[in-house]
């Protein structure tokens, strides 16, 4: 089997997964009891008002057609109308079909913010964790390795909000170096934005670095035990050359895998951290919408998170396939 067909197969599987996940998310939300129009109006629900809102939001149509409308919309970046916004706009007498209450307008800037936060984290975390991981593998069972082991284990075990509050305490309250609230808005300069993002990014870095470093260490140790590394050493090569020429090309696949997996892990971590720092990202929006049961927004956020997660895992798989000489050069 050629490498292209393997990758295409994997891509196809990814798309299928995405499709099935969208069904799960849509169905899960439709398991809600009662009617949303009723829930929205609460005490003031009259049959006419309920019917009006249902028609307005399209809740009276069959579930399959609603699903496909939603899916097609979602594929174009249109996730429908936010219930909370619809309610509000109906109250102020505006037409809910106007662009004002659409989920997409709410989501887009926050999505950009979250991507910014994740990128800053990745830029800090990836080099640090790879260097520490490789050093720990090279000097395994040394004092350095043991200290790194205990501290990363501690960092992995701690909830994200614990790490966040410790950082706030040290870097914002006791030594006012960084702001503890990340109120980001349009028109801020990159520098200001970075300054506000630094504390949440550092929190995520601490958690993700620990994971990444441990996985890198395990991958490298596994690699160093292989007979071809022993062979390289027995050829009298310098330790540096053994690492660079013989270990690294083979370590690429596991390391890429580690990085992609941890970026996927960031997605979960982002929710809690954004809430702690009141960072206006998608995670914060998600939690707020969950609390007020704003279904279209919850659906959209879920879909965005799941897609990112699936895509990163897909990326890890494909990179691993590409870096494997057995698959790149068939017999």
């Amino acid at each position: 089997m050629g490498i292209l067909s393997i990758i295409l197969k994997r891509l196809g599987l990814g798309v299928l997964t995405l499709f099935l996940v969208s069904i799960i998310i849509f169905m899960a939300v439709n398991m809600l009891p009662g009617d949303f129009a009723q829930a929205l109006l609460g005490q003031a629900a009259t049959p006419e008002a309920v019917a009006a809102i249902r028609a307005d939001l399209g809740l009276d149509r069959p579930i399959a057609s609603r699903y496909f409308d939603w899916l097609i919309g979602a594929a174009r970046g249109d996730f429908g109308t936010s219930f909370a916004q619809a309610n509000f706009s109906a109250y102020v007498g505006e037409n809910s079909s106007s662009n004002y209450g659409s989920v997409a307008t709410q989501l887009a800037p926050r999505f950009a913010n979250t991507v910014f936060l994740a990128s800053v984290t990745a830029v800090i975390a990836i080099p640090i964790s790879l260097i520490i991981g490789i050093l720990a593998a090279l000097y395994r069972y040394s004092v350095f390795d043991r200290v790194a082991n205990v501290s990363t284990l501690t960092s992995i075990s701690s909830p994200e909000f614990f790490v966040a509050y410790i950082l706030i305490l040290v870097l914002a309250v006791l030594n006012p170096l960084l702001p503890s609230l990340s109120n980001i808005f349009d028109g801020m300069s990159f520098g200001e934005r970075l300054e506000k993002t630094l504390l949440p990014a550092l929190t995520l870095t601490l958690v993700v670095t620990a994971h990444m470093m441990r996985m890198t260490r395990a991958a490298i140790i596994n690699l160093l035990a292989s007979p071809y590394i022993e062979m390289a050493r027995l050829k009298g090569l310098s330790p540096f050359r053994v690492i660079v020429v013989h270990a690294l090309p083979n370590a690429l696949a596991p390391i890429i895998n580690v990085v992609a997996l941890n970026l996927a892990y960031l997605i979960t971590g982002v929710v809690v951290v954004e809430v702690v720092f009141v960072y206006p990202g998608i995670g914060q929006l998600f939690v707020d919408s969950v609390k007020i049961r704003d279904i279209p927004v919850v659906q959209a956020c879920c879909m965005v998170f799941a897609s990112a997660y699936i895509l990163l895992n897909l990326l890890a798989d494909i990179m691993a396939i590409l870096s494997n000489p057995r698959l790149r050069m068939p017999k």
């Binding site: 099935l20 929710v271 919850v298 879920c302």
Partner: peptide, 16 residues
Amino acid sequence: MLMSIPQLIFALLLMT
């Protein structure tokens, strides 16, 4: 399939 949705996100959705 269930594992391809991040766990905390899925939990939050279901908790809603």
